[in-house]
Structure formats: structure tokens, C-alpha cells
Design a protein around this nucleic acid. Structure first.
Length: 274
DNA sequence: CCGTTCCTGGAT
DNA sequence: ATCCAGGAACGG
């Protein structure tokens, strides 16, 4: 599931292959993922535009195109964005193809068709609620310990797991990193956000930054579908301590427990996380 | 605020 | 044959 480290890796791997490239054609094989504008309008708006830059905000990728247009893509669970030669056979679940003038293509592939694609004016994100209401970037300076403390207080009785998954509080954390962060911080996923001791808030802040940064360094986590912009898998899955390990032993010897919190599968160590 | 919905393939 | 995974949008 592409979360911040995976989307960041996709961004970095797409950049050298896309910047300065012109879009010569667009094929819409499944328009259901295009939210803005109407799918028929989508291709026409893009023809002739040049990729000028790629930014990541939370789990969103924002492609700057010539003429003050932004292509915004969210990969959700199984989305992939890969640049390849236009001679390569299409995958069964490829929904969008952006043809480039160098004989290559940017392809959007998504088994579950949950991905979200938008085309909006530069900086005009009001119509993309999830992007417009994003919290601070946890690996940037704007994410401060003081800011996290205030967010935790504001959310009061929300459970820590739900807090970390709330994109309007901290951007980019999904189910994998929420569990790994809480384990690294030694905090039980059902604790209430507003009830942490100051030293526990410190640990949560440090764990958010370190877990996400280490995964970025290892190019993300590949559980099943995730690959970067060149089709390569990540390596952070080898570092997972709790996600997907329910019933197995923690390094402390206790059995990792699997429960549902905020409607999501959650794995934690009852001894290490209190 | 919380539950449901979208969708497919892999696991059971 | 049935169940489950899960981010964000949407409905209640």
C-alpha cells in the first residue's frame, strides 16, 4: 500500500524519466478513476503539455505541467505509476497511458481501481478535499514536536491508531507505518491521543520521523503490489516489527496481538506497547 | 464522529 | 464458495 515512503520513492524514480518530457498522447482505458475533469475532456487537456516538476504531499503526487496545470494522482492501495518503453505489452489493469515524445510511456496501473486522478489549475486544490485538508509533512521542518503536542491535545479522546491514520493531523501515514510507529514508540494503539505523558509524546514524535525516514532510505515497503517508478520493489518489509506479524513472537518473546482499531487491522506487542 | 462503500485477487 | 485487505469519499 503506497504510503509516504513509497509515494516519495515513486516521485524520486519518476523525476529523471519525466521532467522536460512532452505528452504526445493519452489513452484512457478505464475512466472511472478520473475524478476531475470528465474523462472525455482529460486527454485533450493534456496533449502537448510538458512535465515540469513532481511534488509529493502526503500520499498524493502532484505533477506540474506547462500552462499552469497540475495532474494530481493518489495510488490508494494497489496503484502503480511506471515509465517504460511503449513497445512493452500492456498490463491487464493498466487504466491510463501517457505517451511521451521519446518513445516511452507513463502508465497508471491499479488492480482495485481505487486510485484517484485529478486535473486542476496550478495550486487549485479546493476541489480535492483530501489534498486540501492535509496536515504537516512529517519529514519536513513544519512538523514540530510542539505542533504534534497541540494536535494530540486537540484530538483528545481519539485513539492513537486513528490519530496517526488521520491525514489532516499528520500527512502520509497509513496502516503499515501507523503500527510500526506505535511499536517503535512503545505505545498501545488504543491509548487516547490527549492522555500521553510528555515523554511519551517525545517518543511518538521521534518514532514518526525515524520509521518514515528509514523506510524512505530503503525505498519503501513491498508487501505485494508496490513498485517504484522503474518497477522495482522496496526493502523496508524486511524491517517490519509488527505489521502482518499477528500471532508471531515479538523480539521480547511475547506473542504479537491482532485487533481491530478504528476499523483497521492492528498488530502490537502487549508487553512492549503500554 | 462512525460505518459503509468502492474493487480484485489471494487466502481459507 | 466465501472472506479479507485497505484510503479516502460519502452517507447517516
Amino acid at each position: 500500500m503506497p504510503e509516504l515512503p513509497e509515494v516519495e520513492t515513486v516521485k524520486r524514480t519518476l523525476e529523471p524519466d519525466l521532467i522536460e518530457q512532452k505528452i504526445t498522447g493519452v489513452r484512457v482505458l478505464y475512466g472511472g478513476i478520473i475524478k476531475i475533469p470528465a474523462p472525455e475532456q482529460f486527454a485533450q487537456e493534456l496533449i502537448g503539455r510538458i512535465f515540469q516538476g513532481i511534488r509529493r504531499r502526503g500520499k498524493y503526487l502532484v505533477f506540474s505541467l506547462s500552462g499552469n496545470l497540475n495532474l494530481v494522482i493518489h495510488l490508494r492501495m494497489t496503484g502503480q505509476l511506471v515509465v517504460c518503453e511503449n513497445t512493452k505489452p500492456l498490463d491487464k489493469h493498466t487504466h491510463l497511458v501517457f505517451q511521451l515524445d521519446n518513445g516511452r510511456e507513463l502508465r497508471f496501473t491499479d488492480i482495485r481501481k481505487f486510485g484517484l486522478v485529478y486535473l486542476v489549475g496550478e495550486g487549485c486544490y479546493e476541489d480535492i478535499g483530501g489534498l486540501y485538508n492535509l496536515g504537516p509533512e512529517p519529514l519536513e521542518e513544519e512538523f514540530t514536536l510542539q505542533g504534534l503536542r497541540e494536535s494530540l491535545q486537540k484530538k483528545g479522546k481519539t485513539r492513537l491508531k486513528a490519530f496517526l491514520l488521520d491525514q489532516s493531523q499528520v500527512a502520509g501515514i497509513g496502516n503499515i507505518y501507523a503500527d510500526e510507529i506505535l511499536f517503535a514508540a512503545g505505545l498501545h494503539p488504543e491509548r487516547r491521543a490527549g492522555c500521553l505523558q510528555p515523554h511519551e509524546e517525545d517518543r511518538l514524535y521521534a518514532a514518526i520521523r525515524s520509521r518514515l525516514q528509514e523506510s524512505v532510505n530503503l525505498r519503501g515497503t513491498t508487501i505485494r503490489d508496490y513498485v517504484d517508478g522503474r518497477g522495482e520493489k522496496g526493502r523496508f518489509q524486511e524491517k517490519l516489527k509488527v505489521y502482518g506479524r499477528g500471532g508471531q513472537r515479538c523480539h521480547c518473546g511475547s506473542l504479537l496481538e491482532k485487533i481491530i482499531v478504528a476499523g483497521r487491522t492492528t498488530v502490537f506487542c502487549p508487553k512492549c506497547q503500554v
